[in-house]
């Protein structure tokens, strides 16, 4: 990698002041599990790396029955997984966190990093850019090896899938994020944090180049049953091929409302209102869960080599619904 300037601020104000107003010249370092490989592969070549690990305000995991869970951006995946109340209240989130990479990476990787990691698209990782265009402006993905790419939200120009493991569960659980920039803090519903880039200069999230993610707020879920079902190629050190997070707001046996969010199927975590509609007002049965799975992929349009992901998404939703209804981590 190229030489770079290293900054280690101790407050959020210092941190954002060290960030440039445009993407590319500065990068944030937290767990570093993604940033270092991006830098080694010359996919990002920052002039300055801003280490935020010494910013105390970004740390800390807190749960209260009244306000729910507060996850500082620097909370590690391991801290989250080991938190007794989080385990009890948010099974979907814990199941997603437990699926991440390996114990070593869960000990280093952070919640903020999981949400802000860059896509695993192999064209992107091989230096062809986020939108992976060939010299004539055509898509390398659409005509190439797209077996792991998007089956939803893939009308172009982006075909990669959002790599976050936690986002589908967090969105299903109604999480918000606090962002902080030179103008102060702003709050955003997590589903609005992710955006589908239109140009090579855009990023996959709503952060401005000189903003940082402060914390994630998850509302109380005492009456909610949730689950995440992931389909991976390998047991460990892998990103899922498909994931489904489901949160059911129950009234006895009956679903009052449901949230269904798919991961790794679209350039953003993909909400499936069609499935939510199927579930609302019903009692969970195997048939209903299968129907929800079918509805979740009703808009899917697979690329040339990833039709199997439609089937995986359908099954993942079905199994997540059944798992959520049974409860427990």
């Amino acid at each position: 990698m190229d030489a770079f300037e290293y900054a280690s601020p101790t407050t959020k104000e210092q941190a954002v002041a060290l960030l440039a107003g445009e993407w590319g010249s500065t990068e944030l370092l937290a767990g570093g599990t993604d940033l270092l490989s991006l830098m080694k592969d010359y996919l990002v070549t920052p002039k300055r790396v801003v280490n935020i690990k010494s910013v105390q305000e970004l740390k800390g995991l807190r749960y209260t029955a009244g306000s729910g869970l507060r996850l500082g951006a620097l909370v590690t995946i391991a801290e989250l997984v080991e938190h007794p109340q989080a385990r009890k209240e948010y099974p979907a989130l814990i199941q997603a966190a437990e699926g991440i990479a390996s114990p070593q990476i869960r000990s280093l990787g952070t919640v903020g990093g999981d949400l802000c990691q860059r896509p695993r698209c192999w064209y992107f990782r091989n230096g062809f850019g986020l939108l992976a265009k060939d010299e004539q402006g055509g898509s390398l993905v659409a005509d190439g090896d797209n077996r792991y790419h998007a089956i939803l939200g893939n009308s172009g120009p982006a075909y990669f899938v959002n790599p976050s493991s936690l986002a589908p569960a967090l969105i299903a659980l109604g999480a918000k994020v606090q962002l902080f920039g030179p103008g102060g803090a702003r709050e955003l519903s997590l589903d609005r944090f992710f955006v589908i880039p239109k140009t090579e200069q855009d990023r996959e999230y709503a952060l401005k180049p000189n903003e940082i993610l402060l914390e994630v707020l998850v509302p109380p879920a005492t009456k909610v049953r949730s689950a995440t079902y992931e389909v991976r190629q390998k047991e460990a050190l892998d990103w899922p091929l498909v994931a489904a997070a489901v949160a059911l707001n129950l009234d006895g046996n009956k679903i009052r409302t449901a949230r269904v969010v798919l991961g790794h199927v679209a350039p953003i975590p993909w909400k499936a209102p069609e499935a939510e509609k199927v579930l609302a007002g019903k009692t969970v049965t195997e048939d209903l869960a299968a129907e929800a799975g079918q509805a979740a992929v009703s808009q899917a349009s697979p690329l040339s080599r990833n039709a199997y992901k439609v089937q995986l998404a359908r099954v993942a939703v079905k199994r997540a619904v059944l798992q959520a209804a049974q409860g427990g981590v």
């Binding site: 192999w122 064209y123 091989n126 005509d143 190439g144 390998k234 460990a236 050190l237 892998d238």
Partner: peptide, 20 residues
């Protein structure tokens, strides 16, 4: 990649080498 002739997934993760 059939169009560019580049290897897409070199490495433990990409080539999906098994773990324990």
């Amino acid at each position: 990649d059939q169009m560019t002739g580049i290897p897409l997934n070199p490495g433990y993760y990409g080539a999906r080498i098994v773990t324990h």
